[in-house]
Design a protein around this nucleic acid. Sequence first.
DNA 1: CTAATAGTGTCTTTCAGACATTATCCT
DNA 2: AGGATAATGTCTGAAAGACACTATTAG
Lengths: 232, 232
Amino acid sequence: MTPHAAPTEWRDADGKALTDYPRPSVAVDVAVLTVHAGQLHVLVVERPDDALALPGSFLRPGERLADAAERALRTKAGLVGTDFHQLAMFDSPERDARGWVLSMAHRATLRRDQLPTDATLVRIDGRTATATMAFDHADMVSRAVDDLRARYARRVDPSGLLANTFTVLELRHLYETVFDRPLPKDSFRRLVIDAIQATGQMSSSGAGRPAELFCRGADAELSAGAAGMLTD
Amino acid sequence: MTPHAAPTEWRDADGKALTDYPRPSVAVDVAVLTVHAGQLHVLVVERPDDALALPGSFLRPGERLADAAERALRTKAGLVGTDFHQLAMFDSPERDARGWVLSMAHRATLRRDQLPTDATLVRIDGRTATATMAFDHADMVSRAVDDLRARYARRVDPSGLLANTFTVLELRHLYETVFDRPLPKDSFRRLVIDAIQATGQMSSSGAGRPAELFCRGADAELSAGAAGMLTD
DNA sequence: CTAATAGTGTCTTTCAGACATTATCCT
DNA sequence: AGGATAATGTCTGAAAGACACTATTAG
């Protein structure tokens, strides 16, 4: 059979051929989260009608969702090689006024310096974007934040919001931003220290004793106790 | 505009009208998990070609994924009023030999007595089904088990695999089945006791002192420590 | 030296894990 | 009574949280 051809030869319970049915358009949208000025932000793009939206695209014939998402990031946001994953399918029949469009929401995470300098960022307050967004993209952002927190509670910076090497202070500041709450300095250190790898190098920050630089271990899994500190 | 009409009037980056593109068929599949004989099982249905598959269906025009999943459970498995949720979209272009079909995997969970007596169950060993399954349904099952464990680690029997009232022993046996490992009797009791509600009633099981019957509390959330015992 | 920040020693409290003991049913 | 199972008391070791102390840099 032809690759990517429409499915044929099936009939549903009423005997109606499924090829007679209209099919939905399928889209992908990507919530690119980043940390800027000590707060979570989400990357948005302006639509022709000036509304703010997540970078997204329609699925092309035979294309995989991941390929469509990568293409959306490249063409709409100028990003290549970005890692992301699925969140959920948003399927309200009225979510797009132009017609029946299902959209698979994805999450990506990048450091501010990995984004174009002219990228438009919307601040996230708690788990909601602080700007009106097109379609149901505000819900997608909230969902992305939930996912980010769930993953950061289990592993050390799994999405690479820090550079390859970092100090414990930088890591703690990141976690305070992600979880939007202060974390105890010494407990935090002891909870993460087993999950990160010392490099021997020292940071040459300004004043005070230099801090050791660490990198993510091969298996940067956090202990159950550490997850507890974050999810309480 | 007509409801559920195909989207029109958009053009992609090449100026090609998206209505010119073929669209995928979208399906839903539901992994119905249950506990039988002290082991996790998944409900399967036989396909016309005798292959075993999860109950599923194609999305009808304007239909929501949840409605399609409910319809699939009703028509393919005889189940009504079942609770379920999305897991992930499976989108390999070759996943269905008949054509381009994306499928949203869902998970539902029911007690054995809520299933038809003649339901076909496939035992789950670890996180994999012990029978060959059609399409990528074996991957869906593994994914469903992961999701089940993640949710059971955070709340007390969130999917209602136990009846309204239950003893601590029954609850522990359930968790031993779900997490496929023995759990310490007294530690388990202390970890869950704050998340369940005593009824005052006693179980009238066979020999020995009768156990108190509990029910799920309004907020049956487990402590971080309890989650730790399960996720270690 | 002092200021500033990194890192650790230590105490206390809490709690999981193990074991033993008591409690309450059945036959 | 005796057996069986539920529930709890108690000890111990580990670890989180809080606090203070030491260590190492810059100026």
